[in-house]
Amino acid sequence: MRHIHVIGIGAGDPEHLTLQAVKAVRGTDVFFLLDKGATTADLLRLRRDVLDAHLPDPSAHRVVSVRDPERDRRADGAAYPAAVDDWRARRAEVCAELIRGELSENGVGGFLVWGDPALYDSTLAVLDEVLARGAVEFTYDVVPGVSSVSALVARHRTGLTRVGRPVQITTGRLLAGGFPEGVDDVVVMLDGQQAFRQLYASAEAEGLEVYWGAYLGTPDEILVSGPLARVGPEIERVRAEARERKGWIMDTYLLRRRPGAAGS
């Protein structure tokens, strides 16, 4: 029976890999890399850097790279779930062909997943869809990784939670609907539209602190923190400059209400 490791490789630093992840990497025969194209070639290179750092003999393992299907990023509102489903279905076709065509019947394959595979990543859902289609049989396990959330708060030397208070992890798409009710600490991921901009111009921003980070764990890492009303425009500026320079950006941030602020 074929077996697949779904390996969390952290936010970008090869030293983010856990001992369990290193063991899984060294026990993998074929690594499957989904290439998003020339604009994000850095992401492919970083995955190869991870392998070079942790494989005693990289030549003893195969790396198969294929183009990742494009997702319709214009879809919004009611059309968004259907666009994601369509993208995952096409990704499942690609992954099924990789596993069936590139992995021997008793081989071990591996997908290297940014951060933690259990947090805002589609790999597990895609593999479940592949199995449901019945085109190829395999088992798989999941190796947790250092998420961008953990890396963010560690680099800012702060905690994710405060005593007796919940924390919520959400997306920029949902934050655009307003700051969540009943929580004072909100981690925002996948915010391509920079939803924080509507907050720093509002009265609510006076009570908010922000801890923002981009390219966490890489040589290009950028960190900004402070009162949202003051540093919000700076984040918008450095984010735009970085995206223009590199052609892509991965960032996340923690919004925190100060004690006594309105809404806390």
Rank of each mutant, 00 (worst) to 15 (best):
L190N: 11
L228I: 09
R230M: 05
L223E: 09
G182I: 07
R243G: 11
Q194H: 13
L216A: 03
L190G: 06
E244S: 14
L228T: 06
V224Y: 01
V187M: 05
A242D: 04
R245M: 12
E234T: 14
P227G: 10
P219N: 07
G192K: 07
D185I: 00
L199P: 07
S202Y: 13
D184I: 01
P219C: 10
A229W: 11
A240C: 09
P227H: 07
P180L: 05
M189K: 10
D191W: 06
A203P: 15
G192Y: 09
P219L: 09
F196A: 04
P219Q: 10
E221V: 05
S202L: 10
G213L: 01
L190S: 04
Q198G: 15
E221S: 05
P233Q: 02
A203C: 01
G232T: 10
D191N: 10
M189S: 07
L223T: 05
A195D: 13
E204Y: 03
E206V: 02
E204K: 06
M189H: 04
Y211A: 11
E221L: 10
Y211L: 14
S202C: 10
I235G: 04
G213W: 04
E181I: 01
T218N: 08
G226S: 00
A195I: 11
P180Y: 07
E234G: 02
D185N: 14
D184T: 04
A201G: 15
A201L: 14
E209K: 02
E244F: 00
V186N: 01
G182Y: 02
R245S: 13
Q198K: 14
